[in-house]
Measured scan of single mutants.
Amino acid sequence: SYYEILDVPRSASADDIKKAYRRKALQWHPDKNPDNKEFAEKKFKEVAEAYEVLSDKHKREIYDR
């Protein structure tokens, strides 16, 4: 789930989600993982997609249904 990707509970606040996104984006940024760039790019995209949905109140409500 998007919550698992960002490592936050379903009850996470918008601020918690933003902090988790920043932490995970740094962790999986391809430039930070030169030895495993392809895998890092995949993870980085997953993190971005999760944040896009969970950071938008309307999209998150739909996702949580």
Rank of each mutant, 00 (worst) to 15 (best):
residue 1 S to I: 06
residue 1 S to Q: 08
residue 1 S to K: 09
residue 1 S to Y: 11
residue 1 S to D: 15
residue 1 S to V: 06
residue 2 Y to W: 11
residue 2 Y to V: 03
residue 2 Y to A: 04
residue 2 Y to K: 03
residue 2 Y to G: 01
residue 3 Y to F: 03
residue 3 Y to K: 00
residue 3 Y to C: 01
residue 3 Y to M: 00
residue 3 Y to T: 01
residue 3 Y to A: 00
residue 4 E to I: 09
residue 4 E to L: 09
residue 4 E to A: 12
residue 4 E to G: 07
residue 4 E to V: 11
residue 5 I to K: 04
residue 5 I to E: 03
residue 5 I to G: 01
residue 5 I to L: 09
residue 5 I to T: 07
residue 5 I to S: 04
residue 5 I to N: 03
residue 6 L to I: 03
residue 6 L to W: 00
residue 6 L to D: 00
residue 6 L to F: 02
residue 7 D to T: 03
residue 7 D to E: 14
residue 7 D to L: 03
residue 7 D to S: 11
residue 8 V to L: 12
residue 8 V to R: 00
residue 8 V to Q: 03
residue 8 V to A: 04
residue 8 V to E: 01
residue 9 P to D: 10
residue 9 P to W: 06
residue 9 P to S: 10
residue 9 P to N: 07
residue 9 P to F: 05
residue 10 R to K: 12
residue 10 R to V: 11
residue 10 R to L: 09
residue 10 R to A: 08
residue 10 R to S: 10
residue 10 R to Y: 12
residue 10 R to C: 13
residue 10 R to T: 11
residue 10 R to N: 10
residue 10 R to W: 11
residue 10 R to P: 13
residue 11 S to V: 06
residue 11 S to K: 08
residue 11 S to Q: 11
residue 11 S to I: 07
residue 11 S to E: 13
residue 11 S to N: 15
residue 12 A to C: 08
residue 12 A to H: 01
residue 12 A to S: 06
residue 12 A to T: 02
residue 12 A to W: 00
residue 13 S to A: 06
residue 13 S to V: 05
residue 13 S to T: 14
residue 13 S to D: 07
residue 13 S to W: 02
residue 13 S to R: 05
residue 13 S to F: 04
residue 13 S to C: 06
residue 13 S to I: 04
residue 14 A to P: 12
residue 14 A to F: 15
residue 14 A to M: 15
residue 14 A to Y: 15
residue 14 A to K: 08
residue 14 A to G: 10
residue 14 A to V: 14
residue 14 A to C: 10
residue 14 A to R: 08
residue 15 D to M: 13
residue 15 D to F: 08
residue 15 D to G: 10
residue 15 D to R: 10
residue 15 D to Y: 08
residue 15 D to I: 10
residue 15 D to N: 10
residue 16 D to H: 06
residue 16 D to C: 11
residue 16 D to E: 14
residue 16 D to A: 09
residue 16 D to V: 08
residue 17 I to E: 00
residue 18 K to G: 08
residue 18 K to E: 15
residue 18 K to D: 15
residue 18 K to L: 15
residue 18 K to V: 13
residue 18 K to Q: 10
residue 18 K to R: 13
residue 19 K to A: 15
residue 19 K to T: 11
residue 19 K to W: 09
residue 19 K to F: 08
residue 19 K to Q: 14
residue 19 K to L: 13
residue 19 K to I: 12
residue 19 K to E: 15
residue 19 K to V: 12
residue 19 K to Y: 08
residue 20 A to T: 02
residue 20 A to M: 04
residue 20 A to Y: 02
residue 20 A to E: 02
residue 20 A to Q: 05
residue 20 A to P: 00
residue 21 Y to C: 05
residue 21 Y to E: 02
residue 21 Y to K: 02
residue 21 Y to N: 02
residue 21 Y to V: 03
residue 21 Y to P: 00
residue 21 Y to M: 05
residue 21 Y to S: 02
residue 21 Y to F: 13
residue 22 R to A: 14
residue 22 R to F: 15
residue 22 R to L: 15
residue 23 R to I: 14
residue 23 R to N: 13
residue 23 R to S: 13
residue 23 R to Q: 14
residue 23 R to H: 09
residue 24 K to H: 05
residue 24 K to F: 07
residue 24 K to D: 01
residue 24 K to V: 06
residue 24 K to G: 05
residue 25 A to E: 09
residue 25 A to Q: 13
residue 25 A to P: 00
residue 25 A to G: 05
residue 25 A to C: 15
residue 25 A to D: 02
residue 25 A to Y: 15
residue 25 A to H: 10
residue 26 L to W: 12
residue 26 L to P: 02
residue 26 L to Q: 15
residue 26 L to V: 07
residue 26 L to N: 11
residue 27 Q to H: 09
residue 27 Q to D: 06
residue 27 Q to I: 11
residue 27 Q to N: 04
residue 27 Q to K: 09
residue 28 W to G: 02
residue 28 W to I: 03
residue 28 W to A: 03
residue 28 W to L: 06
residue 28 W to R: 01
residue 28 W to D: 01
residue 29 H to S: 14
residue 29 H to W: 07
residue 29 H to N: 12
residue 29 H to M: 07
residue 29 H to K: 07
residue 29 H to R: 09
residue 29 H to F: 06
residue 30 P to V: 06
residue 30 P to W: 04
residue 30 P to D: 05
residue 30 P to L: 04
residue 30 P to T: 06
residue 31 D to I: 08
residue 31 D to R: 08
residue 31 D to F: 05
residue 32 K to T: 13
residue 32 K to W: 10
residue 32 K to Q: 14
residue 32 K to E: 10
residue 32 K to D: 07
residue 32 K to S: 15
residue 32 K to C: 14
residue 32 K to P: 03
residue 33 N to G: 04
residue 33 N to T: 05
residue 33 N to D: 05
residue 33 N to E: 04
residue 33 N to P: 04
residue 34 P to E: 14
residue 34 P to L: 13
residue 34 P to F: 09
residue 34 P to V: 11
residue 34 P to Y: 08
residue 34 P to M: 13
residue 35 D to K: 09
residue 35 D to G: 12
residue 35 D to C: 12
residue 36 N to H: 09
residue 36 N to M: 11
residue 36 N to G: 06
residue 36 N to S: 08
residue 36 N to D: 09
residue 36 N to L: 07
residue 36 N to I: 11
residue 36 N to F: 08
residue 36 N to Q: 12
residue 37 K to I: 12
residue 37 K to H: 08
residue 37 K to T: 11
residue 37 K to Q: 12
residue 37 K to L: 13
residue 37 K to N: 06
residue 37 K to G: 06
residue 37 K to R: 15
residue 38 E to W: 10
residue 38 E to N: 09
residue 38 E to V: 11
residue 38 E to L: 11
residue 38 E to A: 14
residue 38 E to R: 08
residue 38 E to M: 10
residue 39 F to N: 07
residue 39 F to H: 10
residue 39 F to L: 13
residue 39 F to Q: 09
residue 39 F to T: 07
residue 39 F to M: 11
residue 39 F to I: 11
residue 40 A to E: 03
residue 40 A to F: 08
residue 40 A to N: 05
residue 40 A to P: 02
residue 40 A to K: 03
residue 40 A to Q: 06
residue 40 A to G: 04
residue 40 A to R: 05
residue 41 E to L: 14
residue 41 E to P: 02
residue 41 E to A: 14
residue 41 E to K: 12
residue 41 E to Q: 13
residue 41 E to N: 09
residue 42 K to I: 14
residue 42 K to Q: 13
residue 42 K to F: 12
residue 42 K to M: 11
residue 42 K to H: 10
residue 43 K to P: 01
residue 43 K to D: 02
residue 43 K to Q: 07
residue 43 K to R: 13
residue 43 K to F: 07
residue 44 F to V: 04
residue 44 F to A: 08
residue 44 F to R: 07
residue 44 F to N: 04
residue 44 F to Q: 06
residue 45 K to C: 10
residue 45 K to S: 10
residue 45 K to F: 09
residue 45 K to M: 12
residue 46 E to I: 06
residue 46 E to F: 05
residue 46 E to D: 08
residue 46 E to A: 10
residue 46 E to H: 06
residue 46 E to T: 05
residue 47 V to E: 01
residue 47 V to Q: 01
residue 47 V to D: 01
residue 47 V to Y: 05
residue 47 V to C: 10
residue 47 V to S: 04
residue 47 V to N: 02
residue 47 V to A: 10
residue 47 V to K: 00
residue 47 V to R: 01
residue 48 A to G: 09
residue 48 A to V: 15
residue 48 A to N: 14
residue 48 A to R: 15
residue 48 A to C: 15
residue 48 A to H: 13
residue 48 A to F: 15
residue 48 A to L: 15
residue 48 A to M: 15
residue 48 A to K: 15
residue 49 E to T: 09
residue 49 E to S: 06
residue 49 E to M: 12
residue 49 E to C: 08
residue 49 E to A: 09
residue 49 E to D: 10
residue 50 A to W: 01
residue 50 A to Q: 00
residue 50 A to C: 01
residue 50 A to L: 00
residue 50 A to P: 00
residue 50 A to E: 00
residue 51 Y to V: 03
residue 51 Y to S: 01
residue 51 Y to R: 01
residue 51 Y to W: 09
residue 51 Y to Q: 01
residue 52 E to F: 11
residue 52 E to Q: 12
residue 52 E to K: 08
residue 52 E to W: 13
residue 53 V to R: 03
residue 53 V to P: 00
residue 53 V to G: 03
residue 53 V to C: 10
residue 53 V to E: 03
residue 53 V to L: 04
residue 54 L to M: 03
residue 54 L to D: 00
residue 54 L to W: 01
residue 54 L to S: 01
residue 54 L to T: 02
residue 55 S to H: 07
residue 55 S to M: 07
residue 55 S to L: 05
residue 55 S to P: 00
residue 55 S to A: 09
residue 55 S to Q: 06
residue 55 S to G: 15
residue 56 D to I: 04
residue 56 D to G: 03
residue 56 D to A: 03
residue 56 D to R: 04
residue 56 D to N: 09
residue 56 D to H: 06
residue 57 K to W: 10
residue 57 K to T: 14
residue 57 K to P: 15
residue 57 K to F: 11
residue 57 K to D: 12
residue 57 K to Y: 09
residue 57 K to V: 14
residue 58 H to W: 12
residue 58 H to I: 15
residue 58 H to L: 13
residue 58 H to S: 13
residue 58 H to K: 13
residue 58 H to D: 13
residue 58 H to M: 12
residue 58 H to Q: 14
residue 58 H to E: 13
residue 58 H to T: 15
residue 59 K to I: 04
residue 59 K to A: 11
residue 59 K to R: 13
residue 59 K to E: 05
residue 59 K to C: 09
residue 59 K to L: 14
residue 59 K to Q: 10
residue 59 K to S: 08
residue 60 R to M: 03
residue 60 R to Q: 03
residue 60 R to A: 02
residue 60 R to C: 03
residue 60 R to Y: 02
residue 60 R to N: 02
residue 60 R to S: 02
residue 60 R to H: 03
residue 60 R to G: 03
residue 60 R to F: 03
residue 60 R to E: 02
residue 60 R to T: 02
residue 60 R to L: 02
residue 61 E to G: 07
residue 61 E to P: 04
residue 61 E to Q: 09
residue 61 E to K: 08
residue 61 E to L: 11
residue 61 E to R: 07
residue 61 E to F: 08
residue 62 I to S: 09
residue 62 I to C: 12
residue 62 I to V: 10
residue 62 I to W: 09
residue 62 I to N: 10
residue 62 I to P: 03
residue 62 I to H: 12
residue 62 I to R: 09
residue 63 Y to C: 03
residue 63 Y to R: 02
residue 63 Y to W: 03
residue 63 Y to H: 04
residue 63 Y to F: 05
residue 63 Y to M: 02
residue 64 D to R: 01
residue 64 D to K: 01
residue 64 D to I: 02
residue 64 D to V: 01
residue 64 D to H: 03
residue 64 D to T: 02
residue 64 D to E: 04
residue 65 R to F: 08
residue 65 R to P: 04
residue 65 R to A: 11
residue 65 R to H: 10
